[in-house]
Design a protein around this nucleic acid. Structure first.
Ligand SMILES: [Mn+2]
Ligand SMILES: [Mn+2]
Ligand SMILES: [Zn+2]
Ligand SMILES: [Zn+2]
Lengths: 140, 140
DNA sequence: ATAGTTTCTGCAACCTTTTGCAATTACCAT
DNA sequence: ATGGTAATTGCAAAAGGTTGCAGAAACTAT
């Protein structure tokens, strides 16, 4: 259960510089209850630090992804959304017809993950997936 | 086993107009041996029909996706790739470290598809998936 | 063949995300 | 505290993809 502080320390231990931009971007992600977009992070940081540029937001997200601190997921709707990596390994079913998003437990993908490791020695990143298709209502 | 001609007929039966653009875009997709990008389709069509615009390529792809005639898959590398829907329901493992792409048989996802249908009555579109992670070499 | 209707296209503008580059800043050593 | 240096940032431009709109073209009926 990482706190924003722990992540900040981790960045610093790994040799990354602790800029005010990074710290504010991190806390925007950590304070968000669910999936947050780059634009939303940008707006939130800009409120306190108007000088920030959106390319810094994207570059920081790139870094946090590379360090496995956030997950990136396309839930449809034209912009990608981000999630602290430690906040529950769950998944989502996304209906392409009506847009409804159904939450899915991690366990439904464990056997797939195991099979990929066993049969292909491939370590699949299945921490926060979106699976597209049609929901009950839309498939009638 | 659809031929380009069958797809053309299907479009026409459904009330869509058979424009030269659509026909050329379709044959570019059908003649491609593996995954083709919008840019590649555009270049191929433009060679015979220089007047075409890339937004027509994207709009045609949108239509073909909606009719389940092509699948769209992000295999990494910055641009989405397209595939005739009937050409084998297989999948790909994509290594985020070295970029290698491993082919995967359809069967590995059937139990997931069944479980989603059983437990959530959700018809998942698992026809041509890309699963990201780390390959054997890169996970040592 | 012609005209009417509606779909489809090209174009331009836009949106989200990425990138090269020069200037700035965090960090380290003094 | 000060200066050196490498990482990081802002900015501007670009890349990939989408959208509104007015004109062009496919289909239908005559
Ligand atoms: Mn989630
Ligand atoms: Mn494929
Ligand atoms: Zn639905
Ligand atoms: Zn690899």
């Amino acid at each position: 259960m990482n706190q924003p502080e722990d992540i900040v320390n981790k960045l610093s231990e790994l040799g990354y510089r602790l800029t005010p931009q990074r710290i504010m971007i991190l806390s925007a992600i950590e304070n968000s209850n669910d999936h947050i977009s780059a634009e939303e992070i940008y707006a939130q940081v800009m409120a306190k630090y108007p000088h920030v540029n959106i390319s810094t937001v994207y570059r920081t997200l790139e870094l946090l992804k590379r360090l496995d601190l956030v997950t990136e997921t396309d839930l449809g709707g034209g912009r990608v959304r981000y999630h602290p990596a430690e906040k529950g390994h769950h998944h989502h079913l996304v209906c392409q017809e009506c847009g409804i998003i159904i939450d899915l437990d991690e366990s439904l993908l464990t056997s797939l993950k195991d099979a990929l490791l066993r049969e292909h020695k491939f370590i699949a990143d299945l921490r926060h997936l979106a699976i597209f298709g049609r929901c009950v209502n839309c498939s009638k």
